[in-house]
Nucleic acid binder design. Sequence first.
DNA 1: TATTGTTATACTCTATAACTATA
DNA 2: TATAGTTATAGAGTATAACAATA
Lengths: 165, 165
Amino acid sequence: MSEARSSQPARLGVHFLIAQIGAHAAAKFAERLETLHLTPPQGGILGMINRKDGLSQQTLADLLGMFPSRLVLMLDELQASGLIERRTHTTDRRTYALHLTANGKKALQAIGRIARQHEEAVCAALNENERQILASLLSRIAEEQQLRPGVHPGYRRLEKRGEGQ
Amino acid sequence: MSEARSSQPARLGVHFLIAQIGAHAAAKFAERLETLHLTPPQGGILGMINRKDGLSQQTLADLLGMFPSRLVLMLDELQASGLIERRTHTTDRRTYALHLTANGKKALQAIGRIARQHEEAVCAALNENERQILASLLSRIAEEQQLRPGVHPGYRRLEKRGEGQ
DNA sequence: TATTGTTATACTCTATAACTATA
DNA sequence: TATAGTTATAGAGTATAACAATA
């Protein structure tokens, strides 16, 4: 709140606006996904398996930056829901090869439709030209901050967890 | 991941970029605050008490959208650290009036300095003109989405907690 | 001996509800 | 009886470490 004088609006920093809107957008997106009985992390896992078909749990955990032990439980759920399958590896019997099922691919398409609705809602204040400018500026920040494209830091383990302010 | 064809970069939506960068920025800001032995929610509480000097715990909880029971423990810590004080209300002996101590005001100034450093780091990819454009676009989204200026949704209780995707 | 996946445990965070003291 | 603040409890989420099977 640095710039706050005494009790007025105060010019808010970009970092705060991004954190604020980002948390809001993530929460709203989670609400939308509930209609599919899915959580955002589950959606991210489906997307990653789609992109790297047949990858192992270890590789998936590395790509998303999450602990393998956490991944096991989430994959159990997705498997029980019939969205993914664990195929036994041909040569190495320790590892599984992860794949989307037909229903998993359908779910991913449904997530895509929801994401487009969500994008429209979040950007309602801006016209098409402004949205492109915004996407361009944000992409440059994401690149400079070395964020992995398409990977949300929410998976990551960070020393202390903090949101707010 | 909607727009992902098969295995390539794919154009990322604004909503995702904001959520991704926002989570990253919030985590990094939390790291910076650790040097002051403070968490982001604590910083937000200090800022709000500064803006609404003498407010009650109930009012503060309402403003931040957090449960009063959660607030009690955080205020206990801030009081133990000597950053705030609970003065007894003159007429109503049930309520406390919350104030910053001298050390609390110093801490708030230190937070301001850290926030400016953080702003510089987050926006490193952009020049001054671009930062103003970005701030303007984000402010319009925040307003249209009816986010309270200066209040991070991280305080709020939402049905299900979700990040990721 | 190292690696993949799993299970078990412990810890943190926070919502809920019960409680007290004032009004 | 209603309200401000507090305390207590229970539940969710997740990091850590120990473990079994395989290489």
